[in-house]
Design a protein around this nucleic acid. Structure first.
Length: 427
RNA sequence: GGAGACAUACUCAAGUGGUCGAAGAGGCGCCCCUGCUAAGGGUGUAGGUCGGGAAACUGGCGCGAGAGUUCAAAUCUCUCUGUCUCCGCCA
């Protein structure tokens, strides 16, 4: 959601931005918004004047009654009743127009950063940098689910019976490796100065609708029956919800949080669940980073944040690359975004393990998250990034540390989290 | 989950239908005093947000949120949320 003032003062920039994102069908929205805005302001002025009259008249009635001028008071009362009638229709129109305006504003994309590469869709995303050599070993790497099963670390069949497709039992050292990674990710971010946070795993509907659109909500969120509660799809939901409608102290900025949570996703309309694997599932765990900062610092944080994820995976001996989202693939709320992708020696290509975004003030405007500064309040910038999501991150570690003898080398940094274990073997 | 109490500005707090944007205090700004000194005196300021206006200035909203009663609501009614106390239940 962009600032309506920007449309008032510089609608060319807004239109230009829409074109950059190849959403030409949205171009008429700009003028529609302007027209609505004018109409609403007219209505507001008219209403405000009526309310002013009502206020003064009501006060007058008070003093008339005190002076025992009952008749005069009754006359005035009639006038106020008239005003209220008039206001009723006026207010209804105003509410309707405001809703219409808001729905149109929601469709106008956030102004993207000048550095975002122009492109139509995900095929035009741009590789920024590779970190580590994408090594293809001279032996074959089996499918990750097969590796896990061969080490008695995965049971999808039972999960199918208890919960259905898209669920899994992780067991033994594979489960331990998964937990080790999440714990290590937590400590990794704490070392970077982030505050560790365990948020609520369920949130109310008003928070849900604040952080996503209805379409997204339908496709992602699980609802608890007979309760106004939804299972979170990512801790970002509860972490950003934490600040909804709040005014934070400027001296507390930047607020850098790293949150752990299980994540639940229906994955309706996504590319489909994996029948055998753990790549796309209904339930996973994630260590996330969320930052609220001053607007002028957001780009600096953005670059720091994706770098943290790169460093994290490099410390696990996983080669990665960063892939920048091109203009057309960038979600409407985002200013700039990139994926961190891990190398798959089996598929000999990179696959997504995390996503780093700066939303500028778009999310803050929508949720009214402000900081109190010397010259009044201002909207903060919000950013979020994955440290690691598992089992997806687990796949990367397993494939890149798989040994020819069918065992998995435990990356050094994870060994302390595995009771000193250096290798995952069947025995 | 049950019962009760409460929710007012940065903080504490007064306020049960009109003269309330809201007393008072702390805080904060400025000035004075400098042996009542982890103090004293004087004085000033008061939030947010959306409008109108070239500007000076000015209007609406706003007392946890939403709805209602009324000519008029911080004040009365209802719903919701949160906090505290007691009870119940538990990891």
């Amino acid at each position: 959601m962009i600032d309506i003032n920007l449309i008032r003062t510089n609608k060319e920039k807004v239109s230009e931005n829409i074109k950059k994102k190849f959403q030409d069908e949205k171009l008429p929205l700009v003028d529609e918004v302007l027209e609505l805005d004018t109409k609403i302001r007219e209505l507001k002025l008219k209403g405000d004047n009526l309310r002013q009259e009502r206020n003064t008249t009501s006060n007058l009635i008070g003093s008339l009654i005190r002076d025992q001028k009952q008749e005069e008071a009754n006359e005035k009362k009639e006038r106020v009743v008239e005003i209220n009638k008039e206001l009723e229709t006026l207010e209804k129109d105003e509410t309707n127009l405001n809703e219409l305006l808001k729905s149109k504003m929601m469709l106008i994309p956030q102004i993207i950063d000048d550095s975002v590469p122009i492109g139509k869709d995900d095929s035009e995303n741009v590789e920024i940098e590779k970190f580590g050599d994408p090594i293809v070993p001279d032996f074959e790497i089996p499918y990750h689910a097969d590796i896990c099963e061969s080490l008695l670390g995965l049971d999808k069949e039972s999960a199918g019976r208890t919960s259905g497709n898209g669920f899994y039992y992780l067991m033994g050292d594979i489960a331990r490796l998964h937990s080790a990674m999440i714990s290590y990710a937590r400590d990794f971010m704490i070392d970077k100065g982030f505050i560790y946070c365990i948020p609520p795993f369920m949130i109310r509907s008003d928070v849900v609708t604040g952080v996503m659109s209805f379409a997204e909500m339908d496709a992602m969120m699980y609802k608890i029956e007979n309760e106004d509660l939804y299972l979170i799809g990512t801790s970002e939901h509860s972490m950003i919800g934490k600040f909804k409608g709040q005014i934070v102290k400027e001296e507390d900025l930047p607020i850098a949080l790293t949150s752990y949570s299980p994540c639940f996703r229906k994955e309706v309309g996504a590319h489909g669940l994996e029948e055998r694997g753990l790549y796309r599932v209904h339930q996973f765990e994630k260590q996330e980073m969320v930052v609220l900062c001053k607007p002028e610092e957001s780009m600096e944080w953005y670059n720091k944040m994706w770098q943290f994820t790169v460093d994290f995976f490099r410390s696990l001996d996983v080669p990665v690359r960063t892939l920048e989202c091109c203009s057309g693939d960038l979600a409407d709320l985002k200013v700039k975004s990139c994926d961190v992708e891990a190398w798959s020696p089996r598929q000999q290509k990179y696959f997504e393990v995390g996503s780093c975004s700066t939303l500028g003030d778009a999310q803050a405007r929508r949720l009214s998250i402000r900081a109190k500064g010397e010259n009044g309040n201002y909207l903060v910038s919000t950013l979020n990034n994955t440290v690691v999501a598992s089992p997806r991150g687990l796949i990367a570690v397993i494939e890149n540390n798989y040994q020819e003898d069918g065992t998995i080398k435990v990356p050094e940094v994870l060994q302390t989290y595995m009771g000193g274990k250096k290798k995952i073997t069947l025995k």
